[in-house]
């Protein structure tokens, strides 16, 4: 399996504050990598840095062999990298369909728009039902579905999800993870999954990183980390 994403020594933050300190990780094509940690550990910042929303003050990000550290955020979707932000960040005054159409804004998406819309609605039947509804009126679970569908509109190679389970009922959480797994296993999509819900995350991931106060403290196969006492006590409420 080839490496699709490399993060090397990235330091990032907001204003005067530094949140990530010299963080490095890699993701191989087709795998599901989980990044877990407590609130405020820097998980969202990591995804934002990879997505280009937050500048890396030091370090390098390489995607499919290309150094993308300096590229603007809006370059990503057109070149195979998509992020589903925390809470989905749908456009509240636009309909579900309009949100999906925007997911295909980049040239890569526009070329395949019609068929992609059909494909995505096949994966998420809810989209067809709620097509004309304003995104702001949807429930938490529905919003998450739409957000993931929207991110898929450009047929990304790497999909990043920021805490997709937040605010969702256990049933919905199960559904979301089920879909994520299917996308990775069946369709070959590479996934980075940031989660506070460590149990679920480690259950579905191949490998995982533990982020603590901006530093990577543990890394390894999910199966291994799952069994480790420290992890269980610190994060899984055991």
């Amino acid at each position: 399996m080839s490496t699709i994403l490399t993060v090397e020594g990235v330091t990032a933050g907001y204003g005067d504050a530094t949140v990530l300190f010299d963080v490095s990780c890699t993701v191989a094509a087709g795998e599901i990598v989980a990044v877990v940690g407590a609130n405020g550990a820097g998980k969202t910042t990591l995804l934002s840095a990879i997505a280009g929303l937050v500048p890396a003050r030091a370090g390098r990000i390489t995607f499919r062999g290309e150094d993308i550290t300096g590229r603007p955020a809006h370059w990503r979707p057109g070149h195979g990298l998509a992020l589903v932000a925390e809470g989905g960040r749908l456009f509240p005054f636009m309909t579900v369909e309009e949100n999906l159409l925007l997911g295909a804004y980049a040239p890569r998406g526009r070329a395949i728009l019609k068929e992609r819309l059909e494909e995505v609605m096949a994966v998420f039947p809810i989209l067809r039902e709620r097509r004309e509804q304003a995104a702001g009126k949807l429930s938490g679970g529905e919003r998450q579905m739409v957000a993931i569908a929207r991110a898929l509109m450009c047929r990304p190679d790497l999909l990043m999800l920021d805490e997709p389970s937040v605010g969702l009922s256990p049933l919905m959480v199960g559904r979301v993870f089920e879909i994520v797994e299917r996308l990775a296993r069946r369709d070959g999509l590479t996934v980075i999954l940031v989660e506070q819900n460590v149990t679920e995350a480690l259950a579905v991931a191949d490998r995982a990183y533990v982020l603590d106060h901006g530093h990577i403290t543990r890394a390894g196969a999910a199966a291994v980390l799952r069994g480790e006492r420290e992890i269980q006590e610190a994060y899984m409420g055991v």
Partner: peptide, 15 residues
């Protein structure tokens, strides 16, 4: 990109 555009809902306090 620009810190103002960052995603997290709680931002660092304005300098």
């Amino acid at each position: 990109s620009n810190p103002e555009m960052a995603i997290p809902i709680t931002r660092a306090p304005p300098v």
